[in-house]
């Protein structure tokens, strides 16, 4: 049986097709579902193995990126989402989806219950939207989506991707509790400055994982790096991989493998 992924769609979601394609390519079954359908009845959430909130501008990012959808999910779909994670399901938020998860308080998810926002993703230091490729290192021991120590190159495209923890205690808990999943790194090593850290994220955080390892949010777009030809330097041989695959495919394959058990 293929694991069932529910790819959530709302007004302004715009990466749902390629995200669903990435999941299908990895061996999953992906269904794109409009949030309006879930608001009428959440059975689709109870029947799926994973919830994926793709990139885009849900509700135009009016108020702040991901905020309106976060309020909607918190007030109307909190229970089925919590149930999904508790029964071993996965939640993945990419870019705008990550912003939604952080604003719902699901990430970094140091303290239960969800609904208490511990961190935020705010305006880039450059104060503008930027599309560029970044170098990342995967540092989480427990995320089911990525393996520790892996170096990755992925694209990102956002205006509000700067991770800021609520206070020093949260900052420490995120670092010490293993909630950092992905970090921006500099090409030549050392602390990444702009544009290697493209948005000014505190502690160079590019992605967060919750306590269970089953909820992941990240600013980069793995679904835009499925193929070798997605890489901006593919014509000069990068990324150094013999296959037709790009680095982003790993996230989806790992998720499918985890759900298959």
């Amino acid at each position: 049986m293929k694991p069932r992924f529910l790819v959530l769609r709302a007004a302004g979601t715009n990466c749902d097709l390629e995200t669903a394609f990435a999941l299908e390519s990895a061996g999953g079954h992906a269904e794109r579902v409009h949030v309006n359908r879930l608001l009428q009845g959440a059975t689709a959430l109870d029947e799926c193995d994973a919830l994926v909130i793709p990139g885009g501008f849900s509700y135009g990012d009016d108020i702040a990126a991901g905020k309106v959808l976060a309020v909607e999910l918190l007030h109307h779909l909190r229970d089925p989402i919590v149930r999904l994670v508790e029964r071993g399901g996965l939640v993945l938020g990419i870019c705008n989806g990550f912003q939604v998860l952080v604003k719902m308080g699901m990430l970094p998810g140091i303290a239960a219950p969800i609904g208490l926002q511990e961190a935020t993703l705010t305006d880039n230091d450059s104060s503008r939207y930027e599309d560029r490729w970044v170098r990342l290192v995967s540092v989480s021991e427990r995320s089911v989506f990525c393996r520790p120590g892996e170096r990755l190159e992925l694209p990102l495209a956002h205006a509000e991707g700067k991770y800021v923890p609520r206070d020093a205690a949260v900052r420490r808990a995120v670092l010490e509790g293993g909630h950092v999943a992905l970090r921006y790194v500099a090409a030549g090593g050392g602390a990444p400055s702009y544009p290697d850290n493209p948005n000014g994220s505190v502690d160079h955080v590019a992605g967060l994982v919750d306590r269970t390892g089953r909820v992941l949010g990240l600013m980069p777009h793995p679904e835009r790096a499925l193929l070798r030809v997605h890489h901006p330097a593919w014509t000069c041989g990068a990324p150094a991989a013999p296959s037709e695959e790009g680095h982003g495919a790993r996230f989806f394959r790992n998720a499918v493998q985890y759900l298959r058990g």
Binding site: C15, L17, Y129, D131, R132, H221
Partner: peptide, 15 residues
């Protein structure tokens, strides 16, 4: 150029 999302839809092969 960097302010435009030139990669959404995952089809841009020469950027």
């Amino acid at each position: 150029v960097r302010q435009y999302d030139h990669e959404v839809l995952a089809g841009t092969v020469v950027k």
